[in-house]
Amino acid sequence: MAGGGRTRGCEHWSGVRDRTAHRAAGAQPAPRASGASHQNPALPRGRSPPAPPVERFFAALSGGRVQLSAVLVPSLVLHTTGARSGLIRDVPLMYTPDGQGRAIVAGTNFAGERHPAWTTNLLAHPDAAITVRGRRMLVHATVIPDDERETVWARIEAQWPGYRAYERESHRTVRLFRLQPVLRHAATAGWEPDPTE
């Protein structure tokens, strides 16, 4: 998961860079990533994950769509509905398995001062979808309650040691979500992402 010895994770998979700023800098947007994602073994014990500057470098080159640490930990693509636009937004994230098919994702945003946009989207529209190893499924997101945060962080750091350093450096409470697979969304049965987005 996600946060040298700093770690980056479930941003878990997190923190897509501002594409507008990226393009304004003269960089070309990276080709749209495929929705398919593959799952990889957890980071071996004793091996340090890439330092944040390295992650930021790859994120900048790819417009936020390539995460170096994604090759080291389980990965997914999260499909959310934009809080303001109502459009479908895709973001690659790292995640921590939580049993019974559930996944935990953390909005570390490279220790940035602001919460990543995808976390705001989930707060506004908790019904979402994920693609894992080429398989797409509907999920319902819930915020990890305060009394579970320590336990969840321990689970995350068992997979990605030191990841919580991102929270300390950001001086904010990182949003943690549990993604629960569902057969259909109660309010939006049949919801499908727009393939043109």
Rank of each mutant, 00 (worst) to 15 (best):
G4Q: 07
T7Y: 09
R8H: 08
G9T: 01
C10S: 15
W13L: 12
S14P: 00
T20A: 15
T20I: 04
T20S: 07
A21N: 08
A21Q: 15
A25C: 11
Q28E: 15
A36M: 02
A42E: 14
R45Y: 14
R47D: 05
S48C: 03
A51Q: 07
P52W: 13
L61Y: 09
L61T: 00
L68F: 12
V71R: 14
L78K: 00
L78T: 00
H79E: 11
H79L: 06
H79P: 00
R84C: 10
S85Y: 09
L87T: 02
R89Q: 03
R89H: 07
R89T: 00
D90L: 01
Y95D: 04
T96S: 15
G99F: 01
G99P: 14
R102P: 04
I104R: 02
T108P: 00
P116N: 11
L123M: 12
A124S: 15
I130S: 04
M137V: 01
A141Y: 05
V143T: 12
I144K: 10
E150Y: 08
V152Q: 13
W153L: 05
R155Q: 15
R155W: 12
A158F: 07
W160D: 13
R164N: 13
E169A: 11
V174N: 03
L183M: 05
A186H: 12
P193K: 04
